[in-house]
Design a protein around this nucleic acid. Structure first.
Lengths: 193, 193
DNA sequence: TCGGATTTTACGAACGTTCGTCAGTTATAT
DNA sequence: ATATAACTGACGAACGTTCGTAAAATCCGA
C-alpha cells in the first residue's frame, strides 16, 4: 500500500524537522513520487499529519497497555523496571514514539487543541492503570504505604526523564547511567528497607 | 534599544512556532516594523536566532550557577528542593528557558551541531557542580553513601521531568503534585531513614 | 474469459502566497 | 554632515494546493 509508504516517510520528516519544517515535496521524493500525488491519498498536509499522529498514538498506547495486561504483578520491582526498558525499546526500534513525543510537547500551533486532546487521553489511561497497580502493591505491602498517587507520579517522572534522555539521545552510556541512577533512588524511595 | 525588542519578539515566536514556523515578518510586526528592517540589526534569520539562543543559554547558566554559589550547603534537603523551585520560577517568569528547552531537544537541523555544543557545555557544568555538592554531602554523611554520580543523575532526571511538565504546562495543580511526589520519593531514596 | 466502463493513482503545469534576502532610498538622530 | 535605522520595491525560491489529463488497476455484465 502506497499510503503506508507515504505515512512512513511523513513520520520520518515530521519527526526530524517538525510540522512546519517538513515539506510535502521532501516526503514525496522519499517515496519516489511528486508532491501532487500525495493528494490522491490524503486531503492535504493536515490530514496526512493527523493520520500519522493517530497511528503513533495507537501504537504507543497499545504497547503500553499490553505490557501491563500480561504482567501478573506480584513483583513490582521487575514490572516497573521492565516497563522502563519497554519504553526504551519502543523508542529505539520505531520512530513513532519520538514523533509522538515531539508533537505532544511542541505541537504545530494550529493543531494544538486536537493534539492536546489525544495526549490527555493517553496520559489519563496510563496514570489510571499505574495508580491501580501501585494501589495493589501498597495493599500487599510490597512497597511503602504512600498514597498511590505518589509513586505513580514519581514513576511517570522517571519515564519522562528517560524519554528526554532518549530524545537527546547521543550517548547510550549516559542513558544507561541515568536509568540506573534514577531507578536505584526511586526503588529505594518506595520500597521497605 | 530596538535590537532587544526584536530579540524579545523573536524569542517569543521561536518558542511558540519553532525556527521554521516563525517568520521574520511576524517578528517584525510585533515590534512595529517591516521585516527588511531587521537586517539593520542582524545579518539574517540565523544570526538573530543564534543571538537569542546564546542570550537564553547565558541566562539559564548564570541563574543556576548563582543559585549554587550562594548556597552554603549543609542542608541538602533545602538546597535541592529550592533548586527545583528555582527552575520552576525561571521557567514561568521568563520565556528563555522554554525556548532553550525546545531548541535543545528539537533544534533546527541545519544548526544542530552548533546548538548541541552549547547544550553539552551547560550540561557538563551543571553535572559537575551537582556532583561535587553531592560528594560533599556524602562525605558529611548527610545523605546515603552512594557513588556521587547516582544522586546526581537521579536529581537531573527529576529536573528534566519537572521541565517537561512545565512545557506541557496546562495544569499547575498537576505540576505541584508531580513535584511533591518526585521529591518525596527521591529524598527518601537518598537520605538515611 | 473477455472487453468496455469506472475508479484509482500519478503527473505536468500552474496557482496564489509566503519565505528570507538584497539594493536603493528616505527619514531620523548625533 | 555623517551614521544609523527604517522604508519601498523587488528578487528567486519554496510552500501547499488545484486542475486537467494520462496511465494503471479494478470491476462487471455479456
Amino acid at each position: 500500500m502506497k499510503s503506508n509508504e507515504i505515512k512512513e516517510a511523513a513520520l520520518k520528516y515530521f519527526t526530524i524537522h517538525g510540522y512546519e519544517g517538513a515539506s510535502l515535496a521532501q516526503i514525496a521524493e522519499e517515496v519516489g513520487m511528486k508532491k501532487q500525488s500525495i493528494y490522491a491519498h490524503f486531503k492535504g498536509k493536515d490530514d496526512l499529519f493527523l493520520q500519522v499522529l493517530r497511528d503513533a498514538k495507537e501504537t504507543e498506547l497499545s504497547s503500553k497497555l499490553q505490557y501491563f495486561s500480561k504482567v501478573d504483578s506480584n513483583n513490582p520491582e521487575k514490572d516497573l523496571y521492565g516497563f522502563l526498558h519497554l519504553v526504551i525499546d519502543l523508542f529505539q526500534k520505531n520512530e513513532q514514539l519520538k514523533f509522538w513525543l515531539r508533537m505532544s510537547f511542541f505541537p504545530p500551533s494550529h493543531l494544538e487543541k486536537v493534539i492536546e486532546q489525544e495526549v490527555i487521553d493517553i496520559e489519563e489511561k496510563m496514570q489510571a492503570i499505574l495508580e491501580s497497580k501501585f494501589q495493589d502493591w501498597i495493599n500487599a505491602k510490597l512497597i511503602i504505604g504512600d498514597a498511590a498517587i505518589t509513586p505513580t507520579f514519581a514513576f511517570l517522572g522517571i519515564v519522562d526523564s528517560i524519554l528526554l534522555e532518549l530524545v537527546y539521545g547521543n550517548d547510550e552510556k549516559r542513558l544507561q547511567a541515568k536509568l540506573a541512577a534514577s531507578w536505584t533512588v526511586f526503588w529505594r524511595g518506595i520500597s521497605h528497607q
